[in-house]
């Protein structure tokens, strides 16, 4: 038997073993996909419950004055302003948790309805993508198919973008003027919506707990979450630019989130997808793996510098953000090309 024959024989003997190893790794990776998704589901539930509590307090302050918003503002202005500030911060945290897993939730047939209810569905007046649920309010009113909870109801309500929900213009930040968004909003609708958000978040978590992820889910997770990482990096970048002057939506550095999400993506790829890709195109697999390492290295280095006190200027922050986005875009493109080669379908 010549050398080539020996190699062939060894490959044939070891192939089943390699297959088992790949299966084990894939199984571990899929378990990680589920854990990652559940982690953010639980985060969503926790934030939604805090939001509900915040709204209950706000509702109680208004109710204590018989629903008279002007009287409530006159008596409890500072507390109401603080409540609204907290409610907005909690909403952002809850929304961030959901946005991180939105692609997965929307992509899984068993959970797709939650995407419509929580984040993307239309009111019943529309002909397609309707959020199929009704929303009971504390005063006994039931809103029939009112649209998604995050963007149709609570976001415009809490930020005063919906004139109907504005009950009283009020100088929330105490600077002597009332600008757009400074107002007391409808407490009845706010509390009902927050209760709905908590209820549906828990239902999502329950269905997520029963979910058994497969290879397609892992792929979908990686390709929808990696660009989200770029978005978080972008938020950090913007927070460097604006230095607190404008942009209430980006009050905190996002580098911590970036690192966590990126690590999750790398883990999902390396454990659930890499074995499959490597078997088909080892070079592509190594380039994807190197891409993840490069991106994570960039994030870790930037975070370490920030922790050490470096204040990034606009030019550098922008260059870092662009670089992170570019690496993420290239990773996603390569992962999708690998998926096509492996004949793995995307859900969603």
């Amino acid at each position: 038997m010549n050398g080539r024959g020996l190699v062939l024989a060894a490959a044939l003997l070891l192939a089943p073993v390699a297959g088992v190893a790949a299966d084990d790794a894939e199984g571990l990776g899929l378990a990680n996909v589920k854990e990652f998704t559940l982690e953010h589901s639980r985060g969503l539930v926790a934030q939604a419950e805090l939001l509900e509590a915040g709204l209950a307090d706000y509702h109680a302050l208004i109710a204590a004055h018989g629903g008279d918003y002007a009287a409530a503002w006159a008596a409890e202005g500072a507390r109401l302003a603080e409540r609204i500030h907290t409610i907005r911060a909690l909403w952002l945290e809850a929304s961030n948790h959901y946005e991180t897993i939105e692609g997965i939730v929307a992509g899984i047939p068993e959970t797709a309805k939650y995407d419509l209810i929580l984040d993307a569905g239309n009111p019943g007046t529309e002909s397609e993508d309707v959020a199929e649920y009704d929303l009971p309010l504390p005063d006994g009113t039931v809103l029939k198919r009112p649209g998604n909870l995050f963007h149709t109801i609570t976001e415009p309500l809490f930020w005063g973008m919906d004139e109907k929900g504005v009950k009283l213009p009020a100088d929330l930040n105490g600077d002597g003027k009332v600008t757009r968004g400074e107002m007391l909003f409808d407490a009845n609708l706010g509390l009902g919506a927050a209760q709905g958000l908590a209820r549906w978040a828990k239902a999502l978590e329950a269905d997520m707990t029963a979910w058994k992820p497969n290879r397609e889910d892992a792929l979908t997770s990686v390709v929808v979450m990696t660009p989200t990482v770029g978005d978080y990096f972008g938020e950090w970048k913007e927070s460097q630019f604006i230095s607190g002057e404008i942009g209430a939506f980006v009050a905190q550095s996002r580098l911590t989130d970036v690192e966590g999400i990126m690590s999750g993506c790398r883990r999902m790829y390396s454990q659930a997808l890499s074995p499959v890709v490597a078997a088909i195109d080892a070079d592509l697999d190594s380039r994807i793996t190197a891409g993840f390492e490069e991106l994570l290295g960039l994030v870790e280095d930037t975070r370490a510098r920030e922790a050490a006190g470096t204040k990034f200027g606009a030019e550098e922050a922008d260059a870092l953000g662009n670089e992170a986005q570019d690496i993420a875009d290239r990773i996603v493109a390569m992962v999708l090309q690998a998926a096509a080669k492996a004949d793995v379908q995307i859900r969603g």
Partner: peptide
């Protein structure tokens, strides 16, 4: 607008420094 302008313009194009921009 200072740094707010950089924010509104979506950052700095490749090939430019902050000062040149």
């Amino acid at each position: 607008l200072g740094s707010n302008l950089t924010f509104l313009r979506g950052g700095i194009l490749p090939g430019l420094t902050d000062a040149r921009n």
